[in-house]
Design a protein around this nucleic acid. Structure first.
Lengths: 146, 146
DNA sequence: TCCTTTTATTTAGCTCAGCTAATGAAATAT
DNA sequence: ATATTTCATTAGCTGAGCTAAATAAAAGGA
């Protein structure tokens, strides 16, 4: 199973991997101060923007297994940021929706969370920011395809 | 403390954050099959390329606290991939070095670990790969500056 | 209708990553 | 000599991620 992948691609993949690890670890340190940690914020973001959504779909969107998402949602509900209710159409599934507090927190708080990164991005040239934007779009596509 | 950061930068930061989360979660799933998980592989990489290194420096390089690194190193040593020895110059500190098995695993295994990502990168155009490379370099710089 | 199968979620139980606080031990400064 | 600082470890916590098994509802077939 050694389908030949160019060394160029392997190196890029490796660097992206490593950089993603370090970026998230740095951001995680800042997260500690705020109320919401990374997985919860990320899930809340999907809940807010994808409206009421089934737990399974949410787990898929977040690239985690359903039991993992069950726990994250449980925490969000306990914090008053999301609600769960049975789907009347299909009582097996559960619909997760944001509360108004959840929406508010996303709109105001999300920016604050990535502020340390944003502050650095803000110091880049317009051209560099454009490169980041394009790269993000490419990676996003690539991850979906994996 | 609302130092004004452009909305453009905030959005880029936010997207990068989100994409990094999803990329790592996807890769983590593949990692499960191989022997080494993400933090261990990442640490081993530094150990291999930065030669014998003190535990504290390794923790700093990896953006984690010393106790976290103590455990990661412990696991690597147990797997025969790294060694620890007291620094003769300063008996408080511990030097971590790769074993030949550790080096071998890095050289051969690291590529395999990011293979699923690399396979996707390999299907991109030359121009897209170039964008990824540039973006990675920018992010890497930015993370260091944070 | 009743039984089986499939689908959605949860529970239980595990590994491991990350943190802080406290401790031990060596180096350095007073 | 004593006190302070520095490097690493231990202890103890929270929480993310997984799989396997249990629960519950929907769908389909005899």
């Amino acid at each position: 199973m050694t389908s030949k992948i160019s060394w160029d691609s392997l190196e890029i993949a490796d660097r992206l991997h490593s950089t993603a690890i370090h970026l998230l670890r740095k951001l995680r340190r800042e997260d500690a101060r705020t109320g919401l940690n990374t997985p919860r914020l990320s899930a809340l973001s999907v809940i807010v923007f994808a409206g009421p959504i089934a737990l399974g779909q949410l787990a898929a969107a977040e690239q985690v297994r359903p039991p993992t998402m069950t726990r994250i949602v449980k925490a969000l509900v306990a914090m008053g940021l999301a609600t769960r209710r049975r789907n009347p159409e299909d009582a097996r599934s559960v619909q997760i929706a944001p509360t108004s507090a959840g929406k508010r927190l996303m709109m105001r708080g999300r920016e604050r969370r990535v502020r340390s990164l944003a502050a650095q991005v803000d110091r880049l040239t317009q051209h560099e920011r454009s490169t980041l934007r394009q790269a993000e779009a490419i990676i996003s596509r690539v991850v979906t395809a994996m």
